[in-house]
Design a protein around this nucleic acid. Sequence first.
RNA 1: GCGAGGAUGGCGGAAUUGGUAGACGCGCUGGACUUAGGAUCCAGUGGCCUAGCCGUGCGGGUUCAAGUCCCGCUCCUCGCACCA
Length: 842
Amino acid sequence: MTQTIPSSDAVQADRYSPGEVEAKWQERWRERRLYEVDLHDDSRPKFYFLTMYPYPSGDLHVGHWFAEAPADAAARFKRMNGYNVLFPMGFDAFGLPAENAAIRAARQGEDVHPATLTYQRIERMERQYDQMGAMFDWSKKVITCDPEYYKWNQWFFLKMYERGIAYRKESFVNWDPVDQTVLANEQVIDGRGERSGALIERRLMPQWHFKITDYADELLSFEGLDWPERIRVMQTNWIGRSEGAKVVFRSEQGDDIEVFTTRPDTLWGATFMVLAPEHPLVEKLTTPDRRDAVRAYVERASHMTELDRQAETREKTGEFIGAHALNPVNGERIPIWIADYVLMGYGTGAIMAVPYGDERDHEFAQKFHLEIRPVVRPDDSRVPDEELKDLWTGPGTMINSGPLNGLRNNGEKGRANPAIAAAIDHLKGIGAGEEQVTYRLRDWLISRQRYWGTPIPIVYCDDCGIQPEKEENLPVLLPDDVAFMPTGESPLKHHPAFAEVACPNCGGKAHRETDTMDTFVDSAWYWFRYLSPHDDARPLDPELVKRWTPVDVYTGGVEHAILHLLYARFFTKVLRDLGLVEIDEPFLKLRNQGIILGADNEKMSKSRGNVVNPDELVTQYGADTVRAFLMFIGPWDQGGPWNYQGIEGVYRFLHRVWALVVEQEAKPEPSPDADLDTVAGELKRAVHNAIKEVTEDLGAFRFNTAIAELMTLSNAMGKARAHRAALGPAWSEAVRELLLLLAPIAPHIAEELWERSGFPGSVHLQSWPSYDESALVAETVQMAVQVNGKVRGQVQVPVGAEDSQVLDIARAEPNVARYLSEGQVVREIVVKGRMVSFVVKG
RNA sequence: GCGAGGAUGGCGGAAUUGGUAGACGCGCUGGACUUAGGAUCCAGUGGCCUAGCCGUGCGGGUUCAAGUCCCGCUCCUCGCACCA
């Protein structure tokens, strides 16, 4: 890309110079505190417009602009529509990249502290944000690595600990060997660490969890929320609710083996059982002759990464453990196997296997030659029961199933299926099971073996065990004087002053928890804190929370569909149950922007070298052009490839707007035969049409078409421009409306032209214009005309015309007139809005 | 495999309840102004065998009328995936 700005000798005194205009207005807006919001102002309705706060990576890239500039336009639009709009911004400042940078530095013998790095980056990004011309209210800024912020993470943790929502449990965890930390399930993508890309190992460790599963059912409801279907589906699948039954089998040795099944109706077809390799009963139940084989299998499974396991989706593996269990419904003796297709983390880690009714069990049975017994006869099957196909998961009639024989199985889930209902009742009757709901969702593991995060306020006392830190001792400060380990281990472990403490209970010898919290804890409630960012006495201001939340619109990337957005919903419900807020849901309306791809159609990344730097673009074209171009590129929720050429068109458009308002008319006066009334009428129509369209588009986040409408208006004004002197106030009115419509999208140039036109005040403090319906384009609509049921012609009819007028026009159509003149009109009707029917006799 | 979304000119994309397909922009072509044009302005720009015909991934259907509705496919993107 080479220069496109006209060389300086061509610049006239009043030529559009984005750099000057933008610097001037950013300065003035700052001086006038134009965007500082009075949270107590109740003269206007509130509107909380939230956009996801960024991680302080150090440089704003074009993706930030794509996310935030349109959001800013939508927020400005709301503000001009009479709302008191809160549009805050902050930084998600804890996290691995800053710490990893410190570790890298340590490896080279340098000393870089994550805090120093983070605050430097925040400062740089704030300056870059200012260049965007966004109406962020920085006075409400939240930085999550500030003790004044993370203190409240700790406070919430203590409250949740009191209520049993935060608990410590030894469990298998996802261990990232590169980042040297445990990850949440949500952070493991295809068996690899979300950040590091390293293969995840499974380890058994004591970890802190939040009991998000307590809220599983509530999280499944999106009632009253205007969220994209896509996100709702993703969250619903993630929570993964399954209705079924728990059934207790008993081993011959007398141990209860509990299983969960969604198909209790097929219990009589259970011909073997399968335990997960990690199942606690495996060791005990295995018979001596099978011990070696079983141990080898368990050993192999434990070393397998998640990815290895998933890669083996085709071929089933497993081992018979030598033991048998009794099927509670028919007392049958069935073999017990272990196999890694049964997961310890779901249900009970054990299943009853019904090869006839489950594809996986069927595959397993075939491979190991286990019995397959039909229990549902398909409706259209005519073969004898013994010859039924060996896998059927659909509806039919129950067979080989004792008391269920002959019952209808409609293939539905839960009690809606008579066969399932009967099976559950039967289980209850014999005391071997009952209805149960199981979720895929697991509790949120929040422990991280890292330094740069919120310290978990827990102390382990040799005598008293786990002790929560006292509230008055908060915040538990993250120490600054730490040495970063080249190995990646958390420096907290090697910091005696931090780790060795007195027990808050007995005062005896104790040590502090050295794990820190997942950074998703920070972002699970940050929007509440914008309302009182520096309140030292309490986490949130109840009065302001009541007035301002829930957030009216939340915008951000889809990549947070299940991580952040699910945690935020969970946290809100917890805060509600703690009596701190009164709302059930944090974000009423959610909108996701798409992703801007590099010119090579790949996701932008430093390693690919396809990153577009917005700073250079701003220098070349100005922020207004960059903003408007990102909005114009296509539907916002779609994203798309970056295209250098397109930006020129938007740049030219802003130049033309500038010329319309500022530049002196160089052309000769209009020719005397120009019909001024027509010109004025068309101008007015163009203006009001634009108001209507831009209003609808901005309200619906359709930025691309809003700009297209503005271009159409500016083109129309370009045609009328030659008559501007003669048009007088009509011209000036058109300019006024154009600038108002432009203000949310290109705030600087709109403000400058507003001032130059002599309009009072700031364009951003004006009310949004409304349109005059009667001034809109007199549209016509095409209608078909039929005579005695046959279409004879098409006519153009003005929108909103009276029926009689429509009939007159239709009658005048030559092709129609031919048929009408012959006979007599008996009935005339206008149907379907777009069809004129004549019925003629004679 | 399951779920969600999509397919429209050379390109990004527009098209209320079915009603002149291709708004707006890019690119391209021609012209004007120019020492020059990669600046600006004007005109044109879906295709073709151009009295007209054909055109919204493919094949059917409903309708006076289909990008839009119905049936059957193909391909693409994203999400989930041995969840019992």
